[in-house]
Computed example of a mutant assay.
Amino acid sequence: MIDDSMKEDFYIEALEMFEMAEVGLLNIDRGEGFEENFNLIFRSFHNLKGAAGMFDLQALQAHMHKLETLFEETKSECRLSKVQIDFFLDGVDCAKLLLEGKESSFSFVDHMTDLNDVKLNAKVHEEKVEKAHKEIDLFEDRKNQSLIFVVDDEPVIVEILTDALQNADCKIVGFNSGKELLENLDQNPDLILSDIKMPELDGLNLLKRLSEIRMDLPLIFISGYITKDAMVEALSLGAQGFVEKPIDIDYVKKITSLVIRRYKAHKLLNKSIDYMLYQFSDLDSYLEESGKENIRKSLKNDLESILEQRKILKAVS
């Protein structure tokens, strides 16, 4: 049931789940309701464990399983000490490293009671809390702000579009070649505005490369002139629209806003489906072990049907 587009989405979704866990831990540290925040953190750990298993990230799956098991031990106490909060914040930081394929030196305990005799270092605790707050703020800023890549071999065009579109809700990053843009895709843009005629890697070949790497990433072409054949090819490759030169700034603002809203709506739908699949990962094992094969097959067929419909939606959007 796993496809490449799901793997692309998982990294961003994992960061959101890490953020939810950190928010819950900081809320408890401030003395806010334990039960509500416990459920928030537990769901994050549980979904991350299931997702890591789906994508065969064994080290991350094992790490999240241990964190989840230890965290569940705190439920009966209805509280977390500051030492325990530091422990789980460190655990989340190490999970982020494992997500990136890096090594982690996190030291687990056998049971949460093993931390009872650990003396709190107030300064270290404040530093960990402050670090978590900064990471959450940075992530929220990025999540709420759209990122647009603009690529044109004419620097003046990049400058015009940057000045026109950059605001509190939209960040613009400009490039003068398609190759340079491809090298920065790890920034996860929400939209690309690209010239068609460029040396080395023209707009159509850039779109072909993008469709191989991230088929769902929307692109709008900028051109002084485009043939009908080129337009048909661009649309068949997934281009979302065209902007003629000289550039009509009002039109650019309208079409970029429309395409980004549609793209984010699709991402939200995909996230909901992915979360459902992460939950199914554990449920599938339980149903198999319980001998409830009919229910298991029925759920699996329903999920495969949903995924097939999603593929069709992506192909025509």
Results as ranks from 00 to 15, higher is better:
residue 160 I to K: 10
residue 185 L to N: 00
residue 263 Y to P: 00
residue 267 K to Q: 13
residue 264 K to R: 15
residue 207 L to I: 06
residue 183 E to A: 14
residue 251 Y to K: 14
residue 262 R to V: 09
residue 267 K to A: 08
residue 245 K to F: 07
residue 163 D to R: 15
residue 229 D to W: 11
residue 172 I to T: 01
residue 159 E to W: 04
residue 226 I to F: 05
residue 175 F to E: 04
residue 262 R to S: 14
residue 165 L to N: 06
residue 212 E to T: 12
residue 210 L to F: 02
residue 243 V to T: 02
residue 270 N to W: 07
residue 169 D to F: 08
residue 198 M to N: 07
residue 253 K to F: 02
residue 170 C to D: 00
residue 232 V to T: 11
residue 241 G to T: 05
residue 236 S to Y: 06
residue 210 L to P: 02
residue 265 A to N: 09
residue 158 V to F: 02
residue 268 L to Q: 13
residue 185 L to A: 03
residue 180 E to D: 13
residue 244 E to A: 15
residue 240 Q to M: 14
residue 245 K to E: 06
residue 238 G to M: 06
residue 221 F to P: 06
residue 206 L to Y: 02
residue 177 S to V: 09
residue 217 L to K: 04
residue 175 F to S: 05
residue 234 A to M: 11
residue 263 Y to E: 09
residue 227 T to R: 11
residue 214 R to Q: 11
residue 270 N to R: 14
residue 210 L to E: 00
residue 193 L to Q: 01
residue 229 D to T: 15
residue 237 L to D: 06
residue 192 I to T: 03
residue 175 F to L: 08
residue 200 E to T: 13
residue 159 E to L: 10
residue 269 L to I: 06
residue 166 Q to F: 10
residue 191 L to G: 01
residue 191 L to I: 06
residue 223 S to G: 09
residue 196 I to K: 08
residue 254 K to H: 10
residue 229 D to Q: 14
residue 168 A to V: 12
residue 211 S to P: 00
residue 268 L to Y: 04
residue 168 A to D: 15
residue 217 L to Y: 02
residue 252 V to P: 00
residue 201 L to T: 06
residue 258 L to V: 06
residue 250 D to S: 15
residue 183 E to V: 09
residue 193 L to K: 03
residue 187 Q to Y: 09
residue 202 D to S: 03
residue 215 M to A: 13
residue 255 I to Q: 07
residue 165 L to Y: 04
residue 216 D to R: 13
residue 251 Y to L: 14
residue 168 A to M: 09
residue 163 D to Y: 12
residue 246 P to F: 05
residue 160 I to V: 15
residue 164 A to F: 07
residue 203 G to T: 10
residue 201 L to Y: 08
residue 265 A to S: 12
residue 250 D to M: 14
residue 240 Q to R: 15
residue 199 P to N: 07
residue 216 D to G: 09
residue 162 T to I: 00
residue 171 K to E: 11
residue 170 C to Y: 08
residue 245 K to V: 09
residue 202 D to L: 04
residue 264 K to Q: 11
residue 194 S to W: 05
residue 165 L to G: 08
residue 167 N to M: 08
residue 192 I to A: 04
residue 233 E to Y: 08
residue 242 F to C: 01
residue 258 L to P: 00
residue 217 L to C: 05
residue 237 L to M: 10
residue 187 Q to K: 15
residue 227 T to Q: 10
residue 168 A to T: 12
residue 213 I to A: 01
residue 189 P to S: 07
residue 242 F to E: 00
residue 252 V to R: 01
residue 230 A to C: 07
residue 250 D to V: 14
residue 215 M to Y: 01
residue 255 I to D: 02
residue 216 D to L: 11
residue 263 Y to D: 04
residue 175 F to Q: 03
residue 229 D to F: 14
residue 236 S to G: 00
residue 205 N to T: 08
residue 162 T to C: 05
residue 184 N to E: 10
residue 185 L to H: 03
residue 264 K to G: 00
residue 241 G to K: 03
residue 173 V to A: 02
residue 188 N to T: 11
residue 225 Y to S: 15
residue 253 K to C: 04
residue 226 I to G: 00
residue 173 V to S: 05
residue 252 V to K: 01
residue 169 D to T: 09
residue 199 P to F: 11
residue 263 Y to G: 01
residue 207 L to S: 02
residue 217 L to P: 01
residue 173 V to K: 14
residue 206 L to C: 03
residue 254 K to T: 10
residue 205 N to I: 04
residue 177 S to I: 10
residue 236 S to V: 04
residue 197 K to C: 05
residue 238 G to A: 07
residue 211 S to Y: 09
residue 234 A to F: 10
residue 217 L to D: 00
residue 241 G to I: 05
